[in-house]
Amino acid sequence: MNRYLLIVSVAAMSAFAVGCSDDNTTTDGGTVFTPKDSGTTTTPDTGTTVTDAGGSDATTADGGVQCSNKPVGCFCGTPTTQAQFLNRCTTSTALPFTITFKAGTATDLP
């Protein structure tokens, strides 16, 4: 358990150095994106405390629209690409995946 927490913590702290973009902070259809809370330390179903996935606590305000700046490296603007949708800033629990393994490809399929 301690080792797991350590791995998660290290991954969270070292994962990304990219800050949020604040050039456009509306979501699709012009709906205001208003995070429900700013908490980041979460307790998943397992009861295990997972450390913060990074990002600052401050919100970015731009024209009255807010962005949570979480998790670290998230995208704050109006998403137009798949990567931007998947990595849009959110106050939802964000969990690093830390299990190490050798990645397979199509040629490795039996």
């Binding site: 994962a15 990304f16 429900k36 979460t42 307790t43 998943p44 179903d45 996935a53 998790p71 490296g73 998230c74 798949q82 990567a83 998947l86 990595n87 959110t90 106050t91 939802s92 629990t93 964000a94 969990l95 690093p96 995946f97």
Partner: peptide
């Protein structure tokens, strides 16, 4: 929680596990 291709973190279907 699931981390999709091109995604930096994994997410539950809802904002938290509960």
């Amino acid at each position: 929680a699931f981390k999709a291709k091109g995604q930096d973190f994994g997410y539950y279907t809802s904002s938290t596990s509960t």
